[in-house]
Amino acid sequence: MDDDVLTTLKLLIIGESGVGKSSLLLRFTEDTFDPEQSATIGVDFKVKTLAIDGNKAKLAIWDTAGQERFRTLTPSYYRGAQGVILVYDVTKRDTFTKLENWLNELETYTTRNDIVKMLVGNKIDRDDHEVDRNEGLKFARKHAMLFIEASAKTKDGVQCAFEELVEKILQTPGLWESESQGQTLRLGNQEQGGGRACGGYCSVP
């Protein structure tokens, strides 16, 4: 692995089929838009190295299909993910209403509750919006997610979405370090004093 890479993060993109998950990922990793992108089968995978505040993070991003039949596969990819991008299509209300289902599934299959979630409303380049920005915002707030509207086609918001997500992950203690040592356990009266060279804390006798 590259020496200067601070950490490798596992990200996941989920949401109904056709909302533009694969297109967002292609935009982010290769900065292109491919109208000929075929519908994902099972899961797909891309990597990209991102520099945040001078630190390089290697991102391993799993793209999922979204169709009902492929769903049995995806939960296994939730495991160990530090971040999730949840996508809906601003021109299709039903992709927005289905978000609850996706969150439920996420809740069921992720064990850590500190996983960072980003909500992306995609295809804002189109003008037949069915979901208002405020609705997305409200939903994100309700579920403690980051939120952005984006377009894989015009690249609006795409880079930003990934960067914000990664930044947030790096700011979350214990989420990305391999060791999550954190606080040491201490119990009331026990194991205090002692150990000090001078005999430290004393009482009589």
């Binding site: 075929s38 994902t40 089968i41 899961v43 995978f45 391993a60 596969l73 296994s76 495991r79």
Partner: peptide, 29 residues
């Protein structure tokens, strides 16, 4: 699953890799 995802990841991120990955998973389809 870990084994499987490792195999899928090993195919790399090229267009051919992606194609192969899709094909490997198309048995169910």
């Amino acid at each position: 699953l870990e084994e499987q995802s490792e195999i899928l990841a090993k195919l790399g991120t090229s267009a051919e890799g992606a194609q192969l990955r899709a094909r490997m998973q198309s048995a169910c389809l």
